[in-house]
Design a protein around this nucleic acid. Sequence first.
DNA 1: TTTTTTATGATAAGCGCTTGACATAATTTT
DNA 2: AAAATTATGTCAAGCGCTTATCATAAAAAA
Lengths: 328, 328
Amino acid sequence: MVKLTDVAAKAGCSVTTVSRVINNYGYISQKTRKKVHEAMKELNYQPNSVARSLQGKKTKLIGLIFPDVSNPFFGELVSKIEDRLFKHGYKTILCNAGNDKEKERIYLQMLMANQVDGIIAGAHNLGIEEYQRTGLPIVSFDRKLSDNIPIVSADNFKGGSLATQELYNHGARHIYFVGNPTLDGHPTQKRLLGYKETIKELKLTEHIHPVIFNETLALKEMAIRDLLENHKVDGIVASDDLTALLILNISHDLGIHIPKDLKIIGFDGSKVVRDFEPRLSTIVQPIPSIAQLLVKLLEKRIDNPTEELDNYTYYLPVELLKRESSGK
Amino acid sequence: MVKLTDVAAKAGCSVTTVSRVINNYGYISQKTRKKVHEAMKELNYQPNSVARSLQGKKTKLIGLIFPDVSNPFFGELVSKIEDRLFKHGYKTILCNAGNDKEKERIYLQMLMANQVDGIIAGAHNLGIEEYQRTGLPIVSFDRKLSDNIPIVSADNFKGGSLATQELYNHGARHIYFVGNPTLDGHPTQKRLLGYKETIKELKLTEHIHPVIFNETLALKEMAIRDLLENHKVDGIVASDDLTALLILNISHDLGIHIPKDLKIIGFDGSKVVRDFEPRLSTIVQPIPSIAQLLVKLLEKRIDNPTEELDNYTYYLPVELLKRESSGK
DNA sequence: TTTTTTATGATAAGCGCTTGACATAATTTT
DNA sequence: AAAATTATGTCAAGCGCTTATCATAAAAAA
């Protein structure tokens, strides 16, 4: 393993000088600077970041806590975040917390032990306190953790509203919200709220058909089948695209014509779903912008932990993608 | 920040004793052990893993280099790998290398600088040498890097063959392979080989219709449209599910009936695609097994870097998932 | 009781790097 | 030529933890 002393030897100077070059302080002549850089290159030297971190230098590690990257939405979001972080010189520690409180807790401990510079929290099984206790810079996706932790989120309320209105515009009058309404603080709630509000404005009756997030596919299908077979429904606001796809598929099985008999709008609009299910109307979250903002805010917190932000809540605009399933 | 000395003070013993407890060596009475553990718990103490790593202890960090987790297949694979690693006490540094050689190179440097214990390589923009030069334990997914680096892969050849045979069984006689055939060493090649071999056995003519992986959606669509409109084709082996979905969608647009006029089989079979596009027949890669084996092999290499493995090539069995698109 | 085993402590060195203090050259400015 | 500036070096301490050595005490075995 090449170390600082090796570089110094190669460059014919002292370790202090090499360190001065690397950390860019004190007096250094261009000549020496160049010599040192050459030596580093020749030896393929990389400062041991473990050793550097021990002096209190930044680790340039960021913990990403999200439910699961196998979900296309989170996959894309994590992908974009990772990309931004990389551009800013950070490395990403990936923590798929699922909906496992204990796992998330262990992760938090671990991230602290590894001296990460900050955390982007996108899975929310744990309360504020545990996050607060880390004493680390944190930004949150989609859920409020506390007053002094910035939160970035799509405008879920608006999305729920947009979707409902769109279904109405296309003639739907028995509009259901399908999703998991019980989760407190979960973004689904805001979407539901947008739905409810709009339903009220339109003087319709609200219908909520619960489909639990982490149930098996079969159970979800059962719930949806029940809805389609036993209820008078001509419009559905789905809590997310995957649920919408399920509804699309089951409708097909049951011979329900989309959009004539039933109109559907999903939520999330990840690139994969948009590109590969072109029939589905959906509320698109601006994933790249979300990623960018999360990283920007986190970096701000890291560079200046005490500075108060002028804003702690960021709702990014959503967009209605009109396609066949909502009755084009 | 709570440190070793604090724990020692709290537990009323020396740092040596605490260290003995943590690292489990030397003589320790049950009584003291308990006292120390209690002190650690009370103080919410976590050994600073940066400091530990500096003694040459393992960092318990693993670098995951994959193209992009926004792709459902890689998303699921990374998710499963992360899960396995977590269970084995490892943390995951996520590196989305895309198809960017330079990014992958920087990542490699970075992983070395961070003293990761090992690397799982799943993006292959770089040659062997650069990986070899890291001197780190490595296992590879889907591509041979060198003789002494274990490679785990699904049986792509078999998959290509199975798919072709299945289309034939259902009456297809003008069977095309659609994908990116030029990438050397890429798993697609093996799938193509399986296709070719089977076509030969069946005494049919092989047709390869190139659709380049990293082109834009529009260009891909154009290529597929060209295929469907201007060629006599009644069966398609797609190099991956996303391509297959594209073909499915475009066929629909063109009024081509699936599977009557055209039969399609995809490749990968990620859970998302399986669950949410139930019409698509596909060759399913055993993602959980792949993840498990990758982690197992890597851990073996880490724990015993010099030990020769009895096998360096692992082809895991694929499975044909028969559904509507191949003519059920 | 004496010997052996077990338990704990004190001390110090070291992992690779950073940084400050101080000293001495080499260069540039006056 | 003297003073000021710039460039480099030597040395040492320290980041938090591990580990070896030596010493001593307490408990168990002889």
